[in-house]
Design a protein around this nucleic acid. Structure first.
Lengths: 192, 192
DNA sequence: CTCCAATCTTGTCGGTGTCAAGTTAGCAGC
DNA sequence: GCTGCTAACTTGACACCGACAAGATTGGAG
């Protein structure tokens, strides 16, 4: 599919990204080791640097992939006819289902902020977010413009997702993140 | 003030925590180096390990300090007669004013989750949060019990704070985090 | 004055990120 | 079919880091 095809290994770049996601899901981005990834993939310790230049480069690629996956998720709920609330649930579904990507996407000090691929992926996700918010035709409360409403929605959803994956939320919320998210974020979208 | 007083250095434990906060504010927790902290404090490279045992131990102490500072902030706004909204603004004020603490408090893979000091500090902050939410006497919307309402408030405030410190929010929000927070979180507390 | 325990130092080990230089392998052009 | 080119990967090295063990220093209790 890609115009640049793998030569020796097969698909080292993709393999490394997948291994990184797995490792980060287990122990977080801080514990990630390029040499360990290389070992898992069966290549030399310096092979990763060739594809990503840098540890930050690898994490940047992972973050960009994450923003793409998030945009996909939002587009999907939109295509399914879901409103803002369902988009929010989709946001949470993404965060929980792609913990590694999510945990890297909003830690800019781990990334190459100037990477063009990252910027493009962020823009795609931003557009998808904006589209989800704009899909609410009727202004649900007086004077609140859609820009602030969008930031409110993003905040509550992002906050819930962050708290959930960090394990900070009380246990009595149950083990289904989507159901819990629906309960918690509904108050913002369905005022009395 | 403390019963365990410093011997040789002066107040190495406190000095290291302050240096750590500064370093993390500059470049994030991942880039933190115990040896660099030791250099800044003018002690040997192994000195930090004596006080915190571990890198995770140092970050745990910092996180515990953070939960204490957050509880202080919430108690302060409560004492000043502020309601839930002002407590939320206080939460954001804390996150922005103590970036380093905040960025460590919700990354459990960096911490010793079983540390008793951390647990105690978390409990204090939890109580302060609960108190801030409970201070709203009138249920502002039908059927929404205060437990869910509290989680909603926590989510939107935590989400906004996280997005703000990560620089993910659009620039046109201005440079005053508290004013922006008031705008963004108000929709949850003041429904039409 | 003695002794103890907390504080801090010195030395060392395996592991890691990164750079430089060399090696391999696919492919294009003659 | 051979040559040369370039991307993919390896090998080797260096400085840095976290952690551990053992020793030195110091303040204070008895």
């Amino acid at each position: 599919m890609r115009d640049t095809r793998p030569y020796h290994h097969g698909d080292l770049r993709r393999t490394l990204l997948a291994a990184a996601a797995e490792a980060i899901t287990e122990s977080g981005p801080a514990a990630l080791s390029l040499r360990d990834l290389a070992r898992r993939a069966g290549v030399s310790h310096a092979a990763p640097a060739h594809h990503f230049g840098d540890k930050a480069g690898l994490l940047t690629a992972l973050a960009a992939e994450g923003f793409g996956l998030l945009a996909d998720e939002l587009d999907r709920t939109r295509a399914a006819g879901g409103g803002v609330l369902e988009a929010g649930v989709g946001y949470v579904r993404f965060a929980v289902g792609h913990r590694a990507h999510f945990s890297v996407m909003f830690q800019p000090e781990l990334l190459n902020r100037t990477d063009p691929g990252l910027g493009a992926a962020q823009d795609r996700a931003s557009d998808a977010l904006r589209a989800a918010v704009a899909s609410v035709q009727e202004p649900q409360r007086r004077g609140a413009d859609t820009r602030i409403a969008g930031l409110s929605a993003w905040s509550i959803v992002h906050g819930f997702a962050t708290l959930w994956v960090s394990g900070a939320l009380p246990d009595d919320l149950g083990s289904d993140p989507e159901a819990a998210a629906r309960q918690v974020i509904r108050p913002l979208f369905a005022p009395g």
